[in-house]
């Protein structure tokens, strides 16, 4: 087996804004049909409305939640855990990925376990975190951190590894020092991959926070999800679920926008 064999992350997907097109029209239509079916199915007796709720009920619940459910307090609790976990993950994994990506030995030693952790659902570590850190914000942060850290490390490493040797040689021909090569060639070249990692990490960090709150919290969006789940308040449960999705989607779209800017120089 050659030295380069081993698990490789899939090439980072290219960011593209959806263009308004036939497919967009079809999507909108299918969403509309979905809402329509959801609304009328309980009334036609096709499903039990207690379990499925209805769009109009969810809308009403959303208004209730917005005015009188401490929504902002719960959102702030979740957001704090997310920001701290994700921020710490960024601080740790970008430098680590850059360093590991430059060292061939470090790469061959650490890539398999890192890939395993990248692929494994880090949520399964939640019980361990609870044992170590107790029930509270620390465990939530830890799970969000663990979710976010591996996609960033792995993608950063991949970006550093895919450094263009021709560009390195060109830089050396102009007398670039190792430091110059690092800062002017390797890191800028890896930037698009790093941002892909940052994007993939968002969903995992959100998941970490919410699932953490399902188990170990007295507040937060995840806590509200369990509360309303237990009370069979499907309408409110869905409001919180949608709020979480919107947050994740917005963050992801934001990073995608950065990605698109960075990749302007990348031809197809």
């Amino acid at each position: 087996m050659t030295a380069t064999a081993g698990p490789r992350p899939a090439p980072p997907p290219r960011a593209r804004w959806p263009r308004p097109s036939r497919s967009a029209t079809i999507s909108i239509a299918s969403v509309a049909v979905f809402f329509l079916l959801w609304q009328i199915a309980p009334e036609l007796g096709l499903v039990n409305g207690r379990f499925t709720s209805q769009p109009t009920l969810v809308l009403k619940a959303a208004l209730e939640v917005a005015v009188a459910d401490d929504f902002l307090r719960h959102a702030r609790v979740s957001l704090t855990a997310f920001a701290v976990g994700y921020g710490l993950a960024m601080l740790v994994s970008i430098p680590l990925g850059i360093v590991l990506g430059t060292s061939r030995i470090a790469r061959h030693m650490l890539e398999p376990p890192l890939m395993a952790l990248y692929i494994a659902p880090t949520l399964i570590l939640l019980p361990v975190m609870i044992v170590w850190l107790g029930i509270g914000i620390a465990s939530k942060i830890a799970v969000a951190f663990l979710g976010a850290v591996f996609p960033i490390i792995v993608n950063t490493m991949a970006g550093m590894r895919e450094a263009d040797h021709k560009l390195v040689r060109m830089a050396r021909s102009f007398g670039a020092s190792r430091f110059d090569v690092f800062t002017r060639i390797l890191v800028p070249g890896a930037l698009p991959s790093i941002v892909v990692g940052l994007r993939l990490a968002i969903g995992r960090a959100v998941l970490g926070v919410i699932v953490g709150e399902l188990y170990v919290s007295q507040a937060g969006l995840g806590f509200q999800l369990t509360t309303y789940g237990a009370a069979m308040r499907i309408d409110r449960l869905l409001v919180y679920a949608i709020a979480v999705s919107i947050f994740g989607y917005t963050m992801t779209a934001l990073v995608r926008a950065i990605e698109a800017r960075l990749q302007r120089w990348r031809p197809e």
Partner: peptide, 12 residues
């Protein structure tokens, strides 16, 4: 100074 054959320009 060297002029290389292929794209040795920094794409960014």
């Amino acid at each position: 100074a060297v002029v290389f054959q292929e794209a040795s320009l920094l794409p960014w």
